[in-house]
């Protein structure tokens, strides 16, 4: 889903760049208010964690393998703002060091995967976890959020490509959604596993917006 350079038209990539810069600075401010100086090592090490977790391949049907994307996982474990920052940092390193995603398209990639994926995933997770305020609710919320975060991020990516005139709506949207509906299943399975493990071992580490709500 990392868009390379050249696939987006100038208005699309410039506007998503501006939006991403604004979004990241807001997220950084929000996280700094809570964590203060601790933000620096925590965000850095967590970005390294997501980066390492993305390397693990697991078998998917038909001999292919998939790997964790981690947007929803980061948002559930660290909260929406910190999660978005961590994913954005990972995307920056992937773009600059591994050329996975273009530099001009970096704004769009951050917008899709970090804001729409992780941020949107968090909203979905919170809605479900609030309706069913217990362990089951958190796990179901994480599963749904993980699946949806991949799907809506790919949808945003498809919309940007369509807006750029690269590919018409009726082709790129079904193509992207079709692939990512499947990828999302693997993402949901792994995210659920990780969240239920952390919930069992160190439930205090899972982000919770208001302390009294989570026991």
């Amino acid at each position: 889903m990392h868009i390379p350079d050249g696939f987006l038209a100038a208005p699309t990539w410039t506007s998503t760049w501006l939006f991403s810069i604004a979004g990241i600075s807001v997220c950084l401010k929000k996280v700094t208010m809570v964590l203060e100086d601790r933000i620096i090592p925590l965000m850095g090490v967590m970005a390294a964690f997501i980066f390492a977790a993305q390397m693990l391949n697991f078998p998917v049907a038909g001999g292919t393998s998939g790997h964790l994307l981690g947007g929803a996982l980061a948002a559930v474990l660290l909260g929406p703002y910190a999660g978005a920052v961590v994913i954005a940092i990972v995307l920056i390193v992937q773009c600059l060091v591994f050329q996975d995603g273009g530099l001009t398209a970096l704004g769009a990639n951050i917008f899709n995967i970090s804001f729409i994926g992780a941020g949107g995933g968090y909203i979905i997770y919170r809605c479900i976890a609030r309706i069913k305020n217990d362990r089951r609710g958190v796990i179901i919320g994480a599963a749904v959020a993980a699946w949806l975060s991949v799907v809506i991020a790919s949808f945003a990516c498809a919309v940007e490509l369509a807006l750029s005139g690269t590919s018409p709506f009726r082709i790129v949207v079904p193509a992207m959604l079709g692939v990512h509906i499947l990828i999302g299943i693997g993402e949901a399975v792994i995210t659920t596993g990780v969240v239920s493990f952390v919930l069992k071992v160190r439930p205090d580490l899972i982000y919770c917006p208001k302390k009294e709500e989570c026991q």
Partner: peptide
């Protein structure tokens, strides 16, 4: 079982990373 082991592994890694970040700070 493999998928569960993998998920637990990532979970352990998360906890260790978090604790590492705290001690680094």
């Amino acid at each position: 079982l493999h998928v569960r082991a993998l998920a637990n592994m990532i979970g352990v890694l998360f906890i260790r990373s978090y604790e590492k970040a705290e001690s680094v700070y």
